[in-house]
Design a protein around this nucleic acid. Structure first.
Lengths: 231, 231
DNA sequence: GACAACATACCAACCAGTCGGTATGTAGAT
DNA sequence: ATCTACATACCGACTGGTTGGTATGTTGTC
């Protein structure tokens, strides 16, 4: 679903305690038996977000996960297979974003949509590598060289967009929007703005420039669904 | 300036003939003496856009440029130094985008701005790696691991945004826009949408999804500067 | 004791960068 | 104009360290 830093503890077990909070550091403790797979995926998430996929080595992931190479290749046939599994896990890790936050309780679909944008806006804080998107980063490097990774990233992004579609479709029904605006198309545009804002944030190593862009996105959505005749 | 595929032959000499048109292939001929540096930079542009920075090896760049490793390290102290030089060259390669196209002749600043968006829209065609952004791709991987590369990419993006500012500022003067819209902020938003649309295009390996997003961007800009009371 | 979940030791390929050497130009003196 | 002296451009074999992956041993669990 292409999320970023999911609200801590909303993805139970996804963040193996083997990965220290600061992300790229080496795991202090060894991962408990039975949690190697989850720890490896969590380590891949944080390391790839910081360094990119190709620059992140299997050894680094193992070290960050508190696991040896033997465990790695016991659970994954290759580095590429881990990447695919991590992309799928990323989708799951994002799910709570659509179920938990308060704005999901609102009755008006437009209010829910705008609430989601606010939610994403609020995420744009702290170190850049903690709010950027794992699959967005990875597909950038792998789209032409690894078809399995590309497809997994596409699925994750598509799942995020699909989760936005119902509220957008309902908003299109209730308010009047330009004819050629589709729910899926707008959902994809929202995702594009988020992904683009991550890149700008990386150029400055600061979230401020990303917040500016999401503010424009929110204004656009408000204007799209403005009651006709309102100022 | 974070362009993409600059209109062919608008960047004279930047595309060393050593690099074949298909991008990642090995150079058919050896680069003529005196053009090794330019050929290496052009090769870096095409290979990094397709594979990413870390996954692209110095040997691959040399092969694509039709040059040996000796020449590489004669011109660049390191792979990182080439990356910085290539980012600077990318800025230059984008410059014609703001000087040549017909829309730059228009009198109305908003028309010029919309013309530029159309121009970018028209670029979203063909293989993904031929319209995506070199510095956007590279900063994604290097923002946390190479400060020189990060800074060079920031400068390139900033130059692109700065080139958009005059027209946007003039449009803000002529038409009335919301108070908190700044010329630089909107320029950065335009850049964010473009970068984000590139990422979506990479997920599907198809430009269509990127065009959709740029269409939303154009509608937003038209709405922002709409004469009050117009439908 | 059998099977999954690991750990350890190891390897062949690969990678960025080095180094001694060659080819090509160029400026000044004659 | 030609020779000398030097600089720049380029070549390609080599190296030390790294990388993804393997082969085999060990430990815990039912």
């Amino acid at each position: 679903m292409s999320p970023n830093h999911p609200p801590s503890s909303l993805a139970p077990g996804a963040d193996g305690q083997a990965v220290s909070g600061v992300g790229a550091a080496i795991a202090a403790t060894r991962a408990p038996r039975g949690q190697a797979r989850a720890a490896l995926i969590a380590a891949a998430h944080s390391m790839v977000r910081k360094q990119g996929y190709a620059a992140t080595t299997v050894d680094q992931i193992c070290a960050a996960a508190g696991v040896t190479k033997g465990a790695f290749f016991h659970h994954f046939a290759s580095k590429e297979a881990l990447a695919v599994a991590a992309a799928e896990a990323w989708t799951e890790r994002a799910r709570p974003m659509f179920e938990m936050p308060p704005h999901t309780q609102l009755g008006d679909p437009l209010a829910r949509l705008l609430g989601h944008i606010d939610f994403r806006f609020a995420m744009l804080d702290g170190p850049v590598e903690e709010f950027t998107c794992f699959v967005g980063t990875m597909v950038q490097e792998a789209f032409a060289t690894s078809e399995p990774i590309r497809a997994a990233c596409e699925a994750s992004i598509a799942a995020y967009c699909a989760a936005l579609v119902p509220d957008i479709a309902a908003a299109i029904d209730v308010y009047d929007a330009p004819e050629d605006v589709t729910a899926l198309g707008l959902a994809q545009h929202i995702q594009a703005v988020l992904q683009g804002s991550f890149i700008l944030a990386k150029t400055t190593n600061d979230p401020a420039i990303a917040r500016e862009s999401v503010t424009h996105l929110k204004r656009y959505i408000r204007m799209l669904f403005a009651p006709p005749g309102a100022p």
